[in-house]
Design a protein around this nucleic acid. Structure first.
Length: 719
DNA sequence: ACTACGAGACTTTTT
DNA sequence: GTCTCGTAGT
């Protein structure tokens, strides 16, 4: 009796969903219904009584994917999915470590370092060791530490055959000691700690092994060595691991992902058959043929060919531009044409290899008055003002957090200078104390001693005042009494930061609502809300990926586009050196990874695909002349349609004409004038002050708020 | 303690 | 071209 759950699945999907209790590898091509298979499998296991929600563990890489999975499952089944563990590797490890912090050797309120925090911790460490950071750049030390952790290698196990590596290994050991002293863990540490906890502690390991008989892994090709070991450890002998991935879409090798884990998985988990999902429900035939042809150039593939039951559709359009400006102008024109064919703007994506390429596109779109959204850049919880606020909160939660202390001990300025900090550092290092303890020891005499003392008192009083308050009021209190808000309010140029701090309070309100709406498992319930919020801020700093909704063009890197689809895709900058990127050519398998990236880009398009390149391009402040990307020649010419040549420059609306417009009349700026700004969009001038180089205008940007802008810098355009 | 200027970098990025 | 970082100068 087929269940309605299984309705509409193709034979391969059905086979995957209904596989018996054994480990399986699902090779899921782009657009082949991967998420559907994964979620239907879970629902099916529960519905048929093969598993209870309690026995299911589903692992993803992003919070977005985890949320998506949960919401799809709850849509399929009338059960509360909360017994299931669905989350990211990091989120799940965090949960385990919070529950078993004692066994893991961590304080209850351990804090998590993001990438930035980690780097500043390393800089601080190197400074305290008097290391020449010319010889040992902090970023390189960070890379060394992380790549070892990602392979599950502790400093004691690093094989160092030369002095340089030996030195790096010393830093690795010292860094771990510093983190331990301060009660903080970095991202890789979350995983490594959990791994070590479970391998060391048989009782816990058996507990979780007997609980999770069904482990499902999304984007398996993106797992690194440690994540693979982690899965192997957690999966007991009678667990079934359902691994879904696509080796052709492995584009994160540069951060440790090993698609070879798929082959290893086949062996280690005795996978009897690999199921391939090759029917594509997204793109027309020509696009898939192009993608197949391209990716077939890669050696070492598991092998897979996408097909569709739809027609071949339109040819892929190729445009050879004279210059980068031309390329942008061409794209703008085509977008206008698409719009007149009723293609919605949000269904059009402009993809590029590197972020720097967005600027010229933005400029052209802006001048053409086309709304667009750029993905990437700083996320909310990464902004400096937000980080400052969080640092106060972290100090309240854990006074041993030296990184947090250093961030705010003199921000806003309270007369604690470099001199004082140096003394404090020395004192702490001598005694093996945290900075807080060193400061509290009273051994710092004189004026610096008293100003440091005042800071400690401030934190103590914040901590006391916050005890028992609702989270958002705690944050408000801290913002006011730390002087942060006042500091930013006093500044003319940083009004936006005040808004972000206010937004932080709102975020807390929203967070608490969600948190309280969701009934908790006992292992989580006891936690302090502040600590949970701080963890949330680090583990979910917000995604870079597109959110549907706003009626605007979507601009992003190819990496950020993974997993998404669009009616029309423009892929620009297809030049040797840009795509494939110059630096990839020196790396082992670098070009193959670039080709997979190209494959990902092609398979984002449903109906129409544009590929373009420019003969000349401004790069690093110089004009460069490039040749077309090799990837273009790897697509069968029969699938391509060349649009115009590059002999004559494409007609462009040069920015100069716009500038001239505004300077022709004597005072183009007046109250009531409609203007547009690159970041804030369209607005209207509501106030003016000053003249010449000091002239400022106040502009109401509607949803983006009211801002004061210096005319000299803001590059406003009249509308 | 804050600002200003110059040097140098500069793929991709989630947690 | 543009951003970040570090140092020197006020």
């Amino acid at each position: 009796m087929p269940s309605p759950l299984l309705h509409g699945l193709n034979p391969e999907q059905l086979a995957a969903v209904t596989l018996p209790h054994e480990s399986a590898l699902i090779l899921a091509g782009a657009g082949s219904g991967k998420t559907r298979v994964l979620t239907t499998r879970i629902a099916h296991l529960i519905q048929t009584g093969q598993a209870s929600p309690h026995g299911i563990l589903a692992v993803t890489f992003t919070n977005k994917a985890a949320k998506e999975m949960l919401s799809r499952i709850s849509a399929m089944l009338p059960i509360n999915p909360r017994g299931m563990w669905v989350g990211t590797f990091h989120g799940l490890c965090n949960r385990l470590l919070r529950t078993h912090h004692r066994e893991a050797g961590l304080p209850a309120l351990f804090q998590i370092l993001d990438h930035q925090d980690q780097l500043s911790a390393i800089k601080r460490l190197l400074k305290s060791l008097n290391v020449d950071d010319e010889k040992y750049p902090p970023k390189q030390v960070q890379f060394f530490i992380n790549s070892n952790k990602d392979q599950g290698i502790r400093s004691a196990k690093v094989e160092a055959y030369d002095d340089y590596t030996r030195r790096l290994t010393e830093f690795y050991a010292a860094y771990d000691a510093q983190c331990q002293r301060e009660g903080v863990v970095d991202f890789a540490e979350l995983l490594l700690r959990t791994y070590e906890l479970l391998s060391r502690n048989e009782l816990l390991r058996e507990h979780y092994r007997s609980r999770f008989k069904h482990i499902l892994v999304d984007e398996f090709q993106d797992t690194n060595r440690l994540q693979y070991l982690w899965l192997k450890l957690l999966a007991g002998p009678d667990a079934a691991v359902f691994a879904v991935g696509d080796d052709d879409q492995s584009i994160y090798a540069f951060r440790g992902a090993q698609a070879s884990n798929m082959q290893e998985f086949e062996r280690d988990f005795h996978v009897s058959k690999v199921i391939k999902l090759e029917q594509n429900y997204r793109s027309h035939g020509n696009i898939l043929d192009a993608a197949n042809a391209l990716i077939s150039q890669n050696l070492h593939r598991l092998g897979k060919n996408l097909w569709t039951s739809e027609g071949s559709g339109e040819p892929i359009r190729v445009f050879a531009a004279y210059s980068d400006h031309d390329e942008a102008a061409f794209i703008v024109d085509e977008i206008k044409a698409l719009r007149s064919e009723d293609v919605v703007l949000s269904g059009i994506a402009l993809l590029y290899r590197s972020n720097a390429q967005s600027r010229i596109l933005e400029h052209a779109l802006f001048n053409a008055g086309l709304p667009y959204r750029v993905y990437g850049g700083l996320r909310f919880f990464e902004r400096q003002e937000v980080k400052h606020a969080l640092a106060y909160l972290r100090l309240i939660a854990n006074s041993g957090d030296d990184g947090a202390l250093l961030r705010v001990i003199n921000f806003p300025a309270r007369g604690i200078g470099a001199r004082t900090l140096e003394q404090l550092q020395t004192l702490a290092t001598e005694r093996g104390h945290t900075l807080w303890d060193a400061a509290a020891s009273g051994l710092l005499g004189g004026k610096s001693g008293s100003s440091v003392g005042a800071f400690l008192q401030l934190i103590e009083s914040l901590r006391a005042a916050c005890a028992g308050l609702p989270l958002s009021e705690q944050i408000e209190h801290v913002l006011v009494h730390s002087g942060l808000i006042a500091h930013y309010k006093a500044s003319k140029t940083e009004a936006e930061r005040v808004e972000n701090l206010e937004e932080l309070v709102n975020a807390a309100v929203g967070f608490v609502q969600e948190y309280e709406a969701e009934p908790l498992e006992p292992d989580q319930a006891a936690q302090d809300i502040l600590s949970v919020f701080l963890t949330h801020a680090t583990l979910e700093a917000g995604e870079h990926q597109a959110a549907v909704g706003s009626e605007a063009l979507q601009l992003m890197t190819v990496h950020a586009a993974k997993g998404l689809e669009f009616h029309s895709v423009f892929l620009s900058g297809l030049e040797e050196g840009l795509f494939p990127h110059e630096q990839s050519k020196n790396e082992a398998d670098g070009v193959e990874e670039e080709r997979r990236l190209m494959y990902v880009a092609l398979t984002r398009a449903r109906r129409r695909l544009y590929l373009s390149y420019a003969q000349s391009r401004m790069l690093h402040g110089q004009v460069r002349y490039g040749i077309p990307s090799r990837f273009l020649s790897e697509i069968p010419p029969a699938l391509l349609k060349q649009i115009s040549g590059a002999q004559t420059p494409y007609q462009t609306e040069t920015p100069r004409s716009v500038v001239r417009n505004s300077s022709e009349s004597n005072s183009p700026w007046h109250i009531g004038q409609n203007v547009a700004h690159a970041k804030f969009g369209q607005g209207v001038i509501v106030n003016c002050e000053g003249s010449g180089a000091d002239a400022r205008v106040q502009v109401n940007f509607g949803r983006n708020g009211v801002k004061w802008l210096a005319l000299e810098y803001a590059k406003l355009e009249p509308v």
